[in-house]
Each structure stands twice: as structure tokens, then as C-alpha cells.
Design a protein around this nucleic acid. Structure first.
Lengths: 349, 349
DNA sequence: GTTAGCACTCTAAATATTAGAGTGCTAACG
DNA sequence: CGTTAGCACTCTAATATTTAGAGTGCTAAC
């Protein structure tokens, strides 16, 4: 038997161990593997290989007389080099997109639903991180006077991202002034990204000679308020109850509590989730790789969805390290694709 | 010793048992009570009384040689007839309101914060149920054209309740038409409750002779879309992780899971929560009284907050039956009052 | 390279043991 | 009559003890 054959066998043994452990949550022994591999190899041989895999740090034993369990590295190798995930079929993507789009939802409820559907299909906690108006190209601004010193500012950006904020203004303002302010703002923006718009106004304010000085000042006042109030991204999280149904957390309620606490804190979660989806395709982060306190026993499978080839947000699942990476990668990939599709079709204007 | 003295003693024994059990989560025995009551009564006498209380269904024993635990009825009597809650002081209410109002938040984030603060102070899950524009008096409507067949409808109601919806319209519409539609709508509403507005338009549509027939039709199309899309109330829930930290749920993770599942389903939760806060002041619902599947081991303390004397929403905590009803009643009361106060001060325009 | 056999290890489940917390009852006391 | 000390009794929860068996590594033979 040559070297690549041997390598292939090792892989298939690792694969079988991981997949068996993922479904049963029980350390797996040599006999079981031998059986699963169709008795083509005796348990003694398997034991041999398992010994090697352990020495290389891919497996470990909870105790001497137990079967083996994959280590973080074991999962890593399984995900990167062993398991073969298929890409979701066009049909699957279409179906997901259909569910997303049915009832012609607005953007926000649709994203919420995406998280909900994903969590249900994955039987794991699922999230969607989506950009807000401050990350998009502003297409329209409307100001609704609510009194002399108060107004509602409605911002519409591409892809139906909408934000509205109540703003207190320093100097009182008349209806007519509001009208011309709106006209000024809307000629000014012409599809500019929010921050560009803000920047260009700031520069104009510095050049004090500007004939629209007052307009610029007022506009800035409003937009800066929006900038500081509106978060840069929104998080939709669903299915957290699935997580604590997992046996690893049933056995240890303290871990379950720590995890839930962590999932409750949007502020802690967002940076980690953002950092995960740097690459293009589906990303898998195992245990400590997630870089989130209290998450060492958990993994994350995430992917980005895009608009015009530009990644704008991410979807993914969160669950115990012992998760079905193979199916989940396909599923998350599909969900991300269908969201991309949906954003181009239903939601774009 | 006369009858009222005896009654008073029974009450103080029940009180001590409940409050001890609430803090320790351990069945309480006669000796402990005797000690807590300053040895004024021997454990034998306490045992006597406890026997009575058990026969009356206020207490029960998990098993023969354990102490006693309050029954649902026991808690009920404790809450209704025994414990004395103080009302929150004006100072406490003021402080809570200050925290709510700081940073001059918009309505929605303030409600979210209210739930968050309450859950933190109570160390229990906390909720806020708040009305949406469809429950308020509409003060302003703005339409933002997003294309020939699409527009954004922004509704502003009292107390800064705001909703925006993207609406597809059947017949294409020009900018000028939108302008006159907005003018028509805004003269029409004049602070009417949403449903009245809808009703009056519906009636006008039936009288087909109306000179504004087309306006009315278009307005209805828009408002009906809002009616069917916008929920009647919004739920803010926070601190669910506190619930599963409670010993009763640590011991039985299945219960914890069932409960979390239940808390995740907004649709199931809302009707129950709505029904709780029918009365005026703070309401306490114990176990099955909450009338919610999977909630038999939990209780709810809730109160309404109001605008102009009219209850519009509710705040409360959710936790195990073994909760500190006394402090929580004061706390929830205070939070409700401060929200009422805040709605009158900061938020109203 | 593969495998049967075997001695060895360690756990998890089953069983036995024990300490003690709490009870109800009784009889005595003021 | 209400109160209380005393006592036998019950039941649990914690702690040992035993046991069955799953899984291992090693060895020697194929």
C-alpha cells in the first residue's frame, strides 16, 4: 500500500470518528469505526491509526478506557482537508430565497426571518449581521418637522435600508427652511456613501466662504446626530434555545449560562462575528478561534452576502464545537447566496 | 391568645417560610423558623402550625423527612394577604426615569433599555410590551417616493411612536400626486387614532360620490398595508439568561430548554402578557395563573405604564415561582411609574 | 501491514451503608 | 388550652463498595 492510500485511509478514519462523535456525542471506539468502515479493517488496525492520530494531536481520550474525541485541531483538519462539502444547488438557493421573499417583507423583518429559518433548519442558534444606512449609499433624506425644535429625519439608502431618528435642533426652524434644507440635502447626496456625504459637508463647513454656509451647518448637525445614534450594523439572533438543548450544555448548566449571557450581549458578539467573515466564501471557526470569551466550547459557520459583488453582511450559525460542519457549511452557504439573490431581486428598487 | 393574634402568628410563619425558601431554594424546617422568629416559639409549636398550613394546602413536603415548601396557593396567600410591599419612593422613581432618559434616546431604544435595566436590577428576565403607531393618535404622515410604483410611508404618532413601511402601489404615481396625497392625508387625520382614521376613510370610499374618491382610495391602499404589516405591539425582552441561572432550572435542563423556547416565541408570549395587565396596579401571576404552556414553574410580576391616565403598555419580570415577590413588586411598580413619567416628560413633544 | 488474543485500566452503573435533618406523636407543664 | 421537651420513626442525600464492560496497548503470529 503506497503513501497516498495510507493518507486516504487515515482521513477516512478521522472523518468517521468526527461524524460519529458529532451525531452521538459519545467518545468513539475502534470497534465502532471498524464496523462503520464495513469491516474492511479490523479494530486492531484502527486502534493503530487512532494511536497515531492521537499522537499528532487530532484526537484525545477523555480517559484511558474511553473512545476518542476530536481535538480542536482534529476538527480543523476534518473541516479543511477531509470533509467534502457540496455547494448548494441552484434549486436549494431558489427555494430559500422564495421563503425569504414571500409576503414581500420589508428588509428588516426579512433579515429577522432569515435568522429564524436558518436556526430552525440548522437546529442551532443562527445570526444575521446586516449593515445600516450609515454603511450604504444614501438615496434620499426626508425631514418631518415635529415642532419648532424637533424633527424626524428619515434616511433611505440602497437596498431599502431605512433609518429614522428624532432630532433636537439648537435653533428653531420654520417649515420653509425645512423644505429648502431637504432640497439642499437631496441635491447634495446623489447616491453618496453616508460617510462621504458627511465628509464633504465637513470640508465645506471649513471653507467658511460657502454661500450655503447655513444649510451646510444645519445639515451637518442632523447627519452627525444620525451618525452617532445609528449603529453601523444590526444583529439578528435566533434559536438560542437550541444551543442549550445540546447535551454538552445540559451536562454543565454553568457553561450554558455563560454562553447565553454572551449571546445576550450584542456589543460583545458583533466584533467577533464581523472579524470572522473576512474571507470570501464560507468560513468555519472552531472553539477558541472565534475569539470570544465564553465561546471556547462553541464553533461558528458563517458566510457573507453581497450586493453588487460587495460583501455587506453575514449570516451564520453558532453551536457547540461538536456540530455537523459538513451540512452546515452547505446550508449557510445556501442561505448567504439566497440572501444575496433576494437583495438583488425582491428588495432592490 | 385571641383569634387575630393567632392569625397574625400563622401569617408571620408563612411569611418566614416563603422568604426563607425564596432565598435558599431549600425546603425549610421548623427549627430554622423558630430561630428566625427569635426563639419566641419552640420548633414543636412551629411544627404544629406548619401541619395546619399544610392541611390547608399552603405548604407541602417534597418528602416525609424534608422541610416544607410553599404551594402555588401558599405563594398566592403570601402575596395577597401577608407580605407588605412598600410603594417606590418618589426619589427612586426619579432615579429610574433619569437612567431611562439619559442620552436622550428615541422611544424604541429607551424601551429596550428599560427592559435591560429592569432585568439587571431584578436579576430576572424582564419584558416591556409597548404599543405601536397603530394604537396611537396619528399626528403626521409622510410619503417618500422610491420609484414609480414604490414609496416609503412614514407614520408619526403621539409619544414619538414611529413606523416606516415600504409600500408597493398598483397604479404608478407622480411626484405631484404624492404631494397632494400627503396634504390630503395630513388634513384628514388631525390626531385621530389610527383605526378611526382607517374607518372614516373606509366609509368615505363607500359613499362613492366623494369628490376626493381617488385620494381616499389611494390613502386606504397605503394605510391598510400599514395596518396589516405593522404589529399592534412590540415586545422587548432581556435577561433571559438569568432565568436559566436559577437552581430550579440548573437541576432540570429540560425545563430550562422548554422555558427558553417559550420565551423565544413572541407570538405565544404576547397574548399572555397582555392578559396579565388588565388591572390598574402591579399584578402578580403565579405559576399556572400565567396561562402559558411551559410556564407552570414560573411567575410574572407586571405593571402598566400610561399616557394621560390611559394604560398603553406594560413592564414586568419573569422568573421562577420562587421569586422575591416583595422587592420585585416595588421594583416593577417603580419602573412602570418612571416610564409613565418619562413618557410625559422627555418623550412627549 | 494486519490481526487475534490478552492483560490491564478506568468509568459508569448498581448496590449498600450511613449520618442527619425533619417529622409526628405523646406526655408533662404552667 | 397552648406550649414544649423527648423520642421513635422516616426518608434523603452523601459516601463507600462492588461490578460489568467498553476500550486500550502490546505482543506474537500470519
Amino acid at each position: 500500500m503506497n503513501a497516498t492510500d495510507l493518507e486516504r485511509r487515515r482521513n477516512s478514519i478521522l472523518e468517521t470518528i468526527v461524524e460519529s462523535y458529532v451525531t452521538t456525542a459519545t467518545p468513539v471506539g475502534s470497534k465502532l469505526i471498524s464496523r462503520k468502515l464495513g469491516q474492511s479493517l479490523s479494530s486492531a488496525t484502527i486502534r493503530h491509526v487512532m494511536g497515531e492520530l492521537e499522537r499528532e494531536g487530532l484526537l484525545e481520550q477523555p480517559h484511558t478506557s474511553a473512545g476518542r474525541v476530536p481535538t480542536d485541531l482534529g476538527y480543523r483538519v476534518y473541516v479543511d482537508a477531509v470533509m467534502c462539502t457540496r455547494r448548494p444547488s441552484a434549486e436549494e438557493v431558489r427555494q430559500l430565497a422564495a421563503v425569504l421573499g414571500q409576503d414581500e417583507l420589508d428588509l428588516e423583518p426579512a433579515l429577522e426571518r432569515a435568522a429564524s429559518i436558518l436556526s430552525q433548519m440548522a437546529q442551532q442558534a443562527a445570526f444575521v449581521v446586516a449593515p445600516t444606512v450609515t454603511q450604504g449609499r444614501v438615496r434620499q433624506i426626508e425631514l418631518v418637522p415635529l415642532g419648532v425644535r424637533k424633527m424626524l429625519c428619515v434616511l433611505v439608502a440602497d437596498e431599502e435600508m431605512i433609518a429614522s431618528h428624532v432630532i433636537d435642533i439648537e435653533e428653531s426652524i420654520t417649515r420653509d427652511e425645512v423644505g429648502s434644507l431637504v432640497r439642499f440635502l437631496n441635491t447634495e447626496l446623489t447616491g453618496l456613501p453616508f460617510d462621504h456625504l458627511l465628509g464633504s459637508l465637513e470640508r465645506r463647513l471649513l471653507a467658511e466662504t460657502d454661500s450655503f454656509y447655513h444649510m451646510v451647518k444645519r445639515s451637518l448637525e442632523i447627519l452627525q446626530h444620525v451618525r452617532s445614534t445609528e449603529p453601523d450594523e444590526r444583529l439578528f439572533l435566533d434559536g438560542t434555545s437550541y444551543v442549550i438543548a445540546q447535551p454538552e450544555f445540559r451536562r454543565d448548566p454553568r457553561k450554558a449560562h455563560a454562553l447565553l449571557k454572551c449571546l445576550e450581549s450584542e456589543d460583545a458578539l458583533l466584533p467577533s462575528l464581523r472579524q470572522i467573515t473576512v474571507g470570501r466564501r464560507v468560513q468555519v471557526r472552531i472553539g477558541p478561534e472565534v475569539q470570544l470569551a465564553g465561546f471556547d466550547e462553541c464553533s461558528c459557520v458563517a458566510a457573507t452576502f453581497s450586493i453588487g459583488g460587495q460583501a455587506v453582511g453575514s449570516v451564520g450559525v453558532l453551536g457547540p464545537k461538536r456540530m455537523d460542519y459538513r451540512s452546515l457549511r452547505t446550508l449557510v452557504d445556501g442561505m448567504a447566496q439566497s440572501m444575496t439573490e433576494w437583495l438583488h431581486g425582491g428588495a432592490s428598487i
